[in-house]
């Protein structure tokens, strides 16, 4: 088992009232799954994703990731954990504007203290795998949206994570580009990467092996 959420609650206090963002979430994810989280705006999809990604905290419940209980870990260990095992893909790509494609890919490796030669080899590998060797010296602004998202996914994958978390990865793309990205996810999943995606589109959700529906912070 990759991760397990038990009775997760998350709330904010607003005007003396407790507003629940996540309510009693129970979820088990096995390695190799491809999960789609669906639901209307404000239903807590992104919040759930952030909790799974350890970017956000929760108020109640237990979260085990690879047999580590995340809720008891200190901030530093937690960030080491997600650095090691989780890659993120965003709707708006979040590439660093002032870095080239190559440098963007290299960045996570620098933070993981890989040596220069090793980094070069891994970046070259990744460029090759995604067919973007020719674009390695371009800046994000010089790429189309689909290409930018390709780089975003490549960056998420470069350090060999066990889990990819994607928050509406195709939200800013046209249908053709979106399809290409989803095909890529499918292919990655077949290669063994666990993927959890948040999406609005039924069609994209179909790519997954399991669909989780959220409404007002509750799984239905």
């Amino acid at each position: 088992m990759l991760l397990q959420l038990n009775n997760i609650f998350k709330w904010v206090n607003s005007g003396g009232q407790r507003i629940f963002l996540l309510k009693d979430i129970n979820l088990e994810v096995e390695e190799g799954e491809f999960i789609s989280i669906m639901g209307p705006s404000g239903s807590g999809k992104s919040t759930l994703l952030n909790v799974i990604g350890m970017l956000d905290s929760f108020d109640e419940g237990q979260y085990n990731f690879l047999d580590e209980s995340v809720h008891t870990l200190k901030e530093k260990h937690r960030s080491n954990l997600y650095k090691e095992y989780i890659g993120f893909v965003f709707q708006s790509y979040h590439l660093l504007d002032e870095l080239t494609v190559k440098e963007n890919l290299e960045m996570p490796l620098i933070y993981k203290n890989f040596k220069g030669a090793e980094r070069k080899a891994m970046v070259a590998d990744m460029l090759d795998r995604f067919n973007i060797v020719g674009k390695k010296d371009l800046f994000p602004a010089q790429l189309s949206g689909g290409q930018q998202q390709l780089v975003g996914i490549a960056r998420a994958l470069i350090s060999n994570p066990k889990l990819i978390l994607a928050d509406e990865p195709t939200g800013n793309l046209n249908s053709k580009q979106g399809e290409e990205i989803m095909d890529l996810f499918k292919q990655l999943n077949e290669e063994g990467v666990t993927i959890i995606q948040v999406t609005h589109s039924e069609k994209n959700a179909e790519y997954g092996s399991r669909i989780i529906n959220l409404l007002d912070g509750r799984m239905i």
């Binding site: 970017l55 650095k83 993120f88 979040h94 933070y111 960056r155």
Partner: peptide
Amino acid sequence: TKEIGVRKVIGASVSS
């Protein structure tokens, strides 16, 4: 802000 966020998400430490 956005850059700081991205860097942290892909693994940058506070000090770096």
